[in-house]
């Protein structure tokens, strides 16, 4: 990795990709910036408003509440999915047909369109036709996601854990598989306890993939839209309305281009900051490893 050649002609290889991604990323981003400083009423009717929309958005109490809910949601699912994912990866079979079967089963939730995931859980938790809703009712638990905010939250978290823990598990599983068998043999000779094996052999190998897992899960949970939209529609009230849904309602539902663009930019800056911090961390972890002469 360290002996790359310095050659600016490599730009030629990157150029086609750059044109395509720029078409999809830069032109829309510029447009969003343009919208954010104007009141856009129609194709040829817009008024310059300066920083007004940014001021409104930063002080909007509904958005601040959505932001708070979003942070809470992201932290809760990270706190559940990361340990659970590690646990599952540790108990997954390592070879043979069982390993393949478990792999395919575990990846299933990741391959379902996001709004179908919402539909599946909406059906599953309905009191009249859904197994879970019906079962809880039979057990005498008053469970209703359209009335009770607590139930709605619990269901969304359960759905997200169902949907995305497989990703964490797969990442950890692939990290574990890269540990040479010799390490385990050495540990057996030393009669190391299971905890010692986990702490000193498995966890260090997992650090890299875990950073990727946290990064991906954090970012995806920030973008969550289709699943809660189908499951609860953001309700009851606005108790499960997360950031992207507030944005989509504003931009599509109410056609408020200016404010929603200003909001998008603030949102994007936050995401940019967080991904930069994570990216720098990953890069420095790798650099430290290289300088130690390791993997």
């Amino acid at each position: 990795m360290n002996n790359k050649v310095y050659n600016n002609r490599a730009w030629l290889l990157v150029l086609p990709m750059l044109v395509l991604v720029a078409f999809s990323a830069i032109i829309p981003l510029m447009t969003v910036v343009n919208y954010s400083v104007q009141d856009v009423l129609g194709p040829n009717a817009s008024f310059f408003t300066g920083t007004e929309w940014f001021r409104t958005m930063l002080n909007d109490s509904a958005l601040q509440a959505a932001f708070g809910r979003q942070i809470m949601f992201s932290l809760i699912i990270l706190a559940i999915q990361i340990p659970l994912g590690i646990g599952i990866a540790l108990i997954m079979p390592k070879q043979g047909w069982q390993a393949s079967a478990v792999l395919i089963l575990i990846t299933l939730p990741l391959l379902i369109p996001w709004n179908v995931v919402g539909s599946i859980w909406q059906i599953f938790t309905r009191g009249d036709i859904g197994l879970m809703g019906w079962g809880l009712r039979e057990l005498g638990i008053n469970y209703n996601i359209t009335r009770n905010a607590g139930d709605a939250w619990a269901t969304i978290i359960l759905m997200d854990v169902w949907h995305w823990t497989p990703l964490v598990a797969m990442l950890c599983y692939s990290g574990l598989r890269s540990i040479p068998e010799a390490y385990y043999q050495a540990a057996r000779i030393d009669r190391a306890s299971k905890w010692a094996v986990f702490r000193y052999i498995q966890l260090p190998k997992l650090t890299n993939v875990l950073v990727i897992a946290v990064l991906l899960r954090f970012m995806h949970s920030f973008m969550i839209y289709a699943e809660p939209f189908v499951l609860t529609g953001g309700g009851p009230g606005s108790s499960t309305t997360f950031l992207t849904q507030s944005l989509a309602t504003m931009a599509i539902g109410q056609q408020d281009l200016g404010p929603s663009a200003a909001f998008s930019i603030i949102y994007f800056l936050v995401i940019l900051l967080v991904s930069w911090v994570f990216y720098t961390t990953i890069m420095h972890l790798q650099k430290d490893k290289n300088s130690q002469g390791g993997v």
Partner: peptide, 19 residues
């Protein structure tokens, strides 16, 4: 490139439609 992976598509919806 990686920030594009992180960018929520909702941010780009309207410009995309118009583009």
């Amino acid at each position: 490139l990686l920030t594009n992976l992180m960018a929520p598509p909702a941010v780009f919806l309207l410009p995309y439609f118009q583009l």
